[in-house]
Amino acid sequence: MATGSISSATGIAPKYTVKGHGGPTSQEPTKDGHQVILVTRINGAVFALNPDLVERVDCTPDTVVTLVDGTKYVIAESVPEFIDSVRHYRASLIAQASRIEPEPTMTPVSSSHDELDAKVLPLHRKDR
Rank of each mutant, 00 (worst) to 15 (best):
L121D: 09
V54K: 03
Q27H: 00
P61W: 05
S5W: 07
G20Q: 02
H34G: 03
K19D: 15
L53N: 11
L53Q: 09
P122Y: 03
T107G: 03
S110G: 05
P122T: 07
R41F: 07
R41E: 14
E115L: 14
V79S: 00
P104W: 04
L53V: 05
V64G: 00
A95R: 08
D117I: 13
A91W: 04
P14D: 00
S98G: 01
V65A: 01
E77G: 01
A118Y: 12
E55Q: 15
C59S: 15
H88V: 04
R99Q: 15
P24G: 15
Q27G: 01
V46R: 12
K15F: 10
T105M: 08
V18D: 00
G23K: 03
A95M: 06
V109Q: 11
Q96I: 11
V36H: 12
E103P: 08
T30Y: 04
E115N: 10
S8I: 04
D84G: 10
M106S: 10
P51T: 03
A13S: 10
M1I: 04
R99N: 14
E28P: 00
P24E: 04
S92H: 07
V120Q: 11
D127E: 08
C59T: 13
D62Q: 13
V74G: 00
Q96G: 12
R41K: 14
T63S: 12
P122E: 07
Y73F: 15
E115K: 09
A45I: 13
V109C: 06
A95T: 11
R128A: 10
P61G: 09
R125V: 07
T25K: 15
E77M: 07
E28Q: 15
V109S: 10
A118F: 14
R128D: 08
I12D: 00
S98F: 01
L123N: 08
P51C: 04
G4E: 04
P122M: 03
S92Y: 01
L116R: 11
M1P: 02
G44I: 04
E101G: 04
E55M: 09
G44L: 10
S111E: 13
G70I: 06
A95E: 14
S8L: 11
I94M: 06
P24M: 14
A45L: 13
R41A: 13
P51K: 03
L49Y: 03
D114C: 01
V74I: 13
D58Y: 06
A76M: 09
Y16K: 10
A95F: 04
A97L: 07
H88T: 12
E101H: 10
G33L: 08
V120T: 13
R128W: 05
V86K: 08
P61I: 05
R90E: 13
V57M: 15
L121V: 14
P102H: 07
A2E: 09
I37W: 05
S8M: 06
D114N: 04
E103N: 08
S112Q: 12
D69V: 02
V68L: 12
D127H: 04
V120L: 14
V39Y: 02
K72Q: 15
L123P: 02
K126D: 07
P29E: 14
P61F: 04
D117F: 15
V86G: 00
N43P: 01
T105D: 10
K119F: 13
V46E: 12
V65Y: 01
D69I: 01
D58A: 11
I75R: 03
I6S: 03
M106D: 09
G70M: 05
T107Y: 10
